[in-house]
């Protein structure tokens, strides 16, 4: 067992973990932060996406001990301080960018990282950025639209209800 200390959603956390403990297991099983999901074994679906030191990573493809000293942010830490949905989360709701909700936390984390680097992405850039996040419900239309809307761009011309 190795002791790891990291900051998760603004709170310092210390735990003893085994070497092979993945960050996602640490979050879900040790800390009960179950908003981060596991959807595959091959690091492709992106349901487990979190931010480590401000960058999106797949928490299923990183060991907990590698996050020693890091700032980790999960979906549970994304809402505004008053508990209301933040701009990205609200855009997903406003534009029906989720259905079953399973890929959603990873989508929100991934999309948030995109806008940090590229505040006004094009449709093509949004679609490309989501290469590592698989959604089976939405056909992506409303996810892409939500992200464009969250970036402050006018999405009224994009077909939908």
């Amino acid at each position: 067992m190795t002791k790891v200390t990291m900051t998760i959603n603004g709170k310092s956390v210390s735990r003893d973990v085994e070497g092979q403990t993945l960050l996602v297991s640490f979050l879900r099983d040790d800390l009960h932060l179950t908003g981060t999901h596991v959807g595959c074994d091959t690091s492709q679906c992106g349901a487990c996406t979190v931010h480590v030191d401000g960058k999106s990573v797949k928490s299923c493809t990183m060991f907990a001990v590698e996050a020693e000293g890091a700032e980790v942010k999960t979906i549970e830490g994304m809402a505004n301080a008053d508990g209301s949905l933040n701009v990205m989360q609200q855009a997903f709701q406003d534009h029906h960018g989720l259905q079953c909700g399973y890929c959603t936390p990873g989508m929100v984390m991934s999309a948030t990282a995109l806008l940090k680097d590229n505040p006004k992405p094009t449709e093509a850039e949004v679609r490309k950025h989501l290469e590592g996040n698989i959604c089976r419900c939405t056909g992506y239309h409303n996810i892409v639209k939500a992200i464009l809307a969250a970036s402050g761009q006018d999405v009224s011309a994009i077909a939908a209800e």
Binding site: R28, D29, H32, L33, T34, G35, T36, H37, V38, T74, I75, E76, M78, A79, L85, Q89, F92, Q93, D94, H96, L98, G101, Y102, T104, P105, V108, E161
Partner: peptide, 23 residues
């Protein structure tokens, strides 16, 4: 009408409760 989906709030906050989330 198209009211926003009420279930979205818990999903967007990571507060959904899927079977594997139940300990």
């Amino acid at each position: 009408a198209s009211p926003l989906r009420r279930e979205d709030v818990r999903f967007l906050k990571g507060a959904g409760e899927y079977t594997d989330d139940i300990k």
